[in-house]
Design a protein around this nucleic acid. Structure first.
Length: 559
RNA sequence: UGGCCUAUGGUGUAACUGGCAACACGUCUGUUUUUGGUACAGAAGAGUCUAGGUUCGAGCCCUAGUAGGCCAACCA
């Protein structure tokens, strides 16, 4: 047996190198650090799977850390939904942490930095500070407050903290280099004064740290060994390391920041701001609308945790910008559902089929398999009678030999039932077919073993008995945007590429057993696709979401 | 006009410096099939952005160019 050796991604290679040199295996620790200001999406799922996946691979702890340093945007509601999503994906964090838990430590370090001459209070309007910052090609100039005395800085900083100064007039800045090529090193702001209640610390703090100051120190405090983030933070790494150097980090492990490319998915957008706009403008109904690439949206759409984890594993991780084709995500969910989803009968666009030689009142319960991919799934019985619904597109009055379905004078098999032959059509005054009449071969019952039943017919149709059918609302989803990369057009806004037909609602019929299906239960409607019960389902209204259609080489051929 | 990151089939990810590049999705062909699904078998599709250089030998190293991305919130 030859083992196919799975190659390591660049992050694993870095970790392996570190393990050879300065890190011990016990020191490895990771974290997933969301800001609780919105719902998680499939891009976050990539990061979650990366961090927790590394934790699993190396047997290392992974913290869930809420980066809650901005009380204006953050709320408990989001903390709860984030926890739910991570858990749903199947991961367990070691510690639940909050950057706000480190506010005192951060403050103490900041005071020490002031004493050491590494930080000062600036008292200029933000517009003036922006002016002094310079541009990528021009160095900035020093703030007139840069040389305040340590005592004055300490005094002012404490007053800021207590809310004794006016909101917004002072900030604490790191004293680095206004001429640095790296704009982030030009005396970045560490604290702003915000007289705002925080969802966890209440009114204890009237100053709040900014990302660069809080993040690395949080990693350090938790002794995270490898701090993974997306590419837009590469320039921040220099500052990240500077802060670590300036506070007293000797004798303890210094976290290492490594950046990877964020996920982009074709035919959708991925930023919280843009997703929020879709919700706010009622283009979708909510954050968990099944068309949304949010984790809650995918969950409601019928995606499984396993399929998302498989997807994350398949796309890999690297440093170049990418756009993953949604067809890969669809492949992952089909692959999973094919193995686990029970097969059922459901007709989306019904037309009545009358079997003229079948007894009027007769009904039979026919045995059918629940899942041909899984014998242990067993069988069930479904009712058959004289009048059935079949799919409108499964019939054509005249058809060429490539059409394997029902037409006049031709035979097809009704799945798990009998072989029938098309005889005539009944139309209304507009020429619309309202009934199809056929005859059945009573000897051809599925599984009966008779010679007739063994006859080969080229097509098999799904069907539902009219008398027993259960009506259901079925929501058919399509991509939200008409172009692969809606938010990269230089002139046009992504809002101009919205697909107006991303949701189609139809009324169909399903087999009676589905009346008892519970919310989020998943099925394959045979020959159509995978569906799951939506939470809008009530006692007297059954609602299904189409997760994804089956692959369809016939439909493709006919495009 | 500055700095940083990146560049391999349509898409994504590989290739421990050395045998004109592998895997997955997608595309196309067949076989099987009571799902035009699944499964199975097979095919097409890149000569690794360009130009130099180092080397016996480069997709991997170096230089320059080109292209794309990121950077001047009291956002993260």
């Amino acid at each position: 047996m030859s083992e196919v050796k799975k190659s390591l991604n660049f992050i694993e290679q870095i970790i392996e190198e570190d393990l050879k040199e300065n890190y011990s295996r016990e020191q490895l620790k990771f974290r997933f650090p969301p800001e609780p200001n919105g719902y998680l999406h499939i891009g976050h799922a990539k990061s979650i799977c990366l961090n927790f996946g590394l934790g699993e691979k190396y047997g290392a702890p992974v913290n869930l850390r809420f980066d809650d340093t901005n009380p204006i945007k953050e709320e408990q509601e989001f903390v709860d939904s984030i926890k739910e999503d991570v858990l749903w994906l199947g991961f367990k964090w070691d510690k639940e942490c909050y950057a706000s838990d480190y506010f005192q430590q951060l403050y103490d370090w900041a005071v020490q930095m002031i004493r050491d001459g590494y930080a000062y209070v600036d008292s200029q309007p933000s517009a003036v500070m922006a002016e002094q910052k310079g541009t990528p090609t021009q160095p900035g100039v020093n703030s007139p407050f840069r040389s305040r005395t340590i005592e004055e800085n300490l005094d002012l900083f404490e007053k800021m903290k207590n809310g004794e100064t006016e909101e917004g007039v002072h900030v604490l800045r790191a004293k680095i280099d206004m001429a640095s090529k790296n704009m982030l090193m030009r005396d970045p702001v560490m604290y702003r004064s915000l007289h705002k209640k925080h969802h966890r610390t209440g009114n204890n703090w009237m100053i709040y740290p900014l990302y660069d100051w809080a993040h690395g120190q949080s990693d350090f405090t938790e002794q995270v060994s490898h701090s993974l983030c997306t590419l837009e933070f590469v320039m921040h790494r220099e500052l990240y390391n500077w802060f670590l150097k300036v506070i007293d980090t000797k004798d303890q492990l210094n976290p290492k920041q490594t950046e990877f490319a964020r996920l982009n998915l074709s035919y959708t957008v991925m930023s919280k701001r843009k997703l929020a706009e879709l919700v706010n403008k009622n283009i979708v109904s909510s954050w968990d609308d099944p068309r949304m690439p949010t984790i809650s949206g995918l969950r409601r759409r019928g995606y499984t945790p396993a399929s998302i984890r498989k997807f994350a594993e398949t796309i890999g991780v690297a440093k170049r910008d990418n756009v993953i084709d949604v067809s890969l995500l669809e492949f992952c969910i089909r692959e999973d559902l094919n193995k686990i989803a029970p097969r059922v009968m459901g007709v989306l666009d019904p037309v009545k089929l009358v079997i003229t030689n079948y007894q009027e009142e007769k009904e039979e319960w026919l045995e059918t398999e629940n899942n041909p991919e899984d014998e242990s799934a067993g069988t069930r019985e479904i009712p058959f009678s004289k009048e059935l619904y079949i799919e409108r597109e499964d019939f054509k009055e005249e058809a060429n030999r490539k059409f394997f379905r029902l037409s006049l004078g031709k035979e097809v098999r009704l799945k798990s039932a009998y072989i029938i032959k098309g005889e005539k059509v009944v139309k209304d005054e507009n020429g619309e077919i309202i009934e199809i009449h056929c005859t059945y071969d009573s000897q051809s019952k599925s599984g009966s073993g008779t010679e007739e039943s063994l006859r080969k017919v080229k097509g098999t149709l799904h069907w539902v008995s009219v008398k027993h059918a259960v009506e259901a609302e079925i929501r058919l989803y399509d991509r939200l945007f008409n172009v692969e990369s809606p938010d990269t057009d230089k002139e046009k806004s992504y809002m101009e590429f919205i697909n107006p037909d991303s949701l189609q609602i139809v009324r169909g019929y399903v087999e009676p057993g589905l009346k008892a299906a519970g919310v989020s239960e998943k099925f394959q409607f045979q020959r159509i696709g995978y569906f799951n019960v939506d939470k809008d389902t009530t006692e007297d209204k059954l609602v299904f979401n189409r997760t994804v259609a089956l692959r369809d080489s016939w439909g493709k051929q006919n495009q």
